[in-house]
Simulated scan of single mutants.
Amino acid sequence: MGDATSSTTRWVPWRVAPASGFEVDDPTGRGSVGIVQIDERQFVVLNTFRYSDQGVENDLVAKLVRGGMEQSQARAAVDRARTFVPREDNPTDLASVPRFMRWFEDSYGKHSLAALIHDELISDAVNSGALGSDTLSDRFFREMMRTSGVPWLKRWLMWSAVALRTRWVAGGYRRLSIVLWLLLSVAGVIATIGSAGALLFDWPWLFDWPWPVSSPGWSLTVALLMIFIAAPLWGRQWAASLIAAVGALWLVPAAAVTSLAWIVYRVLEGIARTLRLR
C-alpha cells in the first residue's frame, strides 16, 4: 500500500511493543513517540506513526469492498486510517478512560497508539472517519490492540466500551436499544448479586417475584440467560454485548465504590478550599 507521508520518513518499530505492527517516524531510531502537555488534560503528539499489519489491512480492505467501495478506494481509505499525522489543532487526552475506571486501565499503555488512531477515525458525525464506518473503526481498534499485546479480556472489554458509544451516537432505534439493554443490565446485575449472596452467604431474599424467579436459584438462572437474550439489542456487535454484560457483573460494583471514593475526595477538597488550608 502507498504511504501518506514523504519518502524521507524513517519508520522505526514502536519501542513499547516492537512486534505490534506500529512504526514511528523517529529520526533518532529509538522508536519513541513524543508528546507535549498543553493543559491539565490535553496533549499534542509530535511524531507521525502508522500501523502496518498486512493481514489486518487486507481484512479491512475486503470489508470495505464488500460494502460497495472500489478496491483502489478501499486501499486508499485504509492507508489514511492506519496513519496518524500530528496536528496541533487536534489535541488528545490519550485513551479516554473515565476516572472511576483508571484502576482497571490507564489512559496510556500498550493500547496508546491504537487509541490515538481510533480517536482520529471517530468524530461526533456518524461514520465520518476515513473508513466510513464507526463499527469497522471499532473493530480496527480491537485488532490493533491484539497485535500490540493487550490481553484478550481487556481488549474485548475496551472494544465493547467503544461499541457502546458508537451505537449511542448513532441515535434512533440504536440508542433506544442501548437504553433498554442498560436497564436490563442494571436489573440483571442486582439480581445476580442478590441471588448469589442469598445462595452462598444466606443473605435475606428480598425479591418477591412471580414464578419462575421467586427463588434465588431461579432468579440467578434467569439473570444469566438474559445476557444472551439481550445480546441482539447490539445488532451486529452482539459479541460486545456479551463481553459487556459479563464485565458489568464485577466492573460496575467496583466502579460504584471508586466513584463514591472520588465524591468523598471532592467534598474534602471543597472543605479545604473553604477553610483556605495551605
Score class of each variant (00 low, 15 high):
180 L>P: 00
58 N>D: 05
159 W>Y: 15
39 D>K: 12
164 L>Y: 13
59 D>Y: 07
260 L>F: 09
45 V>I: 15
271 I>T: 05
119 D>H: 09
246 V>W: 15
174 R>K: 14
184 L>Y: 01
86 P>C: 03
221 T>W: 04
128 S>F: 05
116 L>V: 02
121 L>Q: 14
53 D>T: 05
243 I>Q: 00
172 G>M: 01
136 L>Y: 04
203 W>K: 12
225 L>M: 12
170 A>K: 12
163 A>I: 02
161 A>S: 09
183 L>M: 13
277 L>R: 14
218 W>G: 15
132 G>Y: 11
33 V>M: 07
265 Y>L: 09
161 A>P: 05
239 A>R: 13
220 L>T: 05
130 A>S: 01
32 S>K: 13
231 A>T: 05
106 D>Q: 14
197 G>E: 01
257 V>E: 12
229 I>V: 15
265 Y>V: 11
137 S>K: 05
121 L>G: 08
180 L>W: 10
186 V>Q: 04
236 R>Q: 12
221 T>E: 09
254 A>R: 14
159 W>C: 09
75 R>F: 00
211 W>T: 05
266 R>W: 11
114 A>Y: 01
233 L>R: 10
26 D>K: 07
187 A>T: 06
198 A>N: 02
237 Q>W: 04
102 R>L: 13
256 A>M: 13
33 V>I: 03
2 G>C: 02
15 R>K: 06
96 S>D: 15
233 L>N: 13
188 G>R: 02
97 V>D: 02
40 E>S: 15
223 A>Q: 04
205 W>F: 13
64 L>W: 02
29 G>P: 08
268 L>H: 03
198 A>I: 02
221 T>S: 07
91 P>L: 07
219 S>G: 14
186 V>M: 08
117 I>K: 02
219 S>D: 08
198 A>Q: 07
163 A>K: 15
278 R>M: 03
149 G>E: 03
185 S>R: 11
215 S>I: 07
54 Q>D: 13
110 K>I: 00
201 F>P: 05
228 F>Q: 08
162 V>D: 01
93 D>V: 15
218 W>K: 07
177 S>L: 02
131 L>H: 03
256 A>G: 05
145 M>F: 02
37 Q>I: 08
2 G>T: 11
181 W>K: 11
3 D>M: 03
222 V>A: 13
247 G>R: 01
186 V>I: 13
80 R>A: 10
71 Q>Y: 10
214 S>W: 13
144 M>R: 01
223 A>N: 09
135 T>D: 06
39 D>I: 08
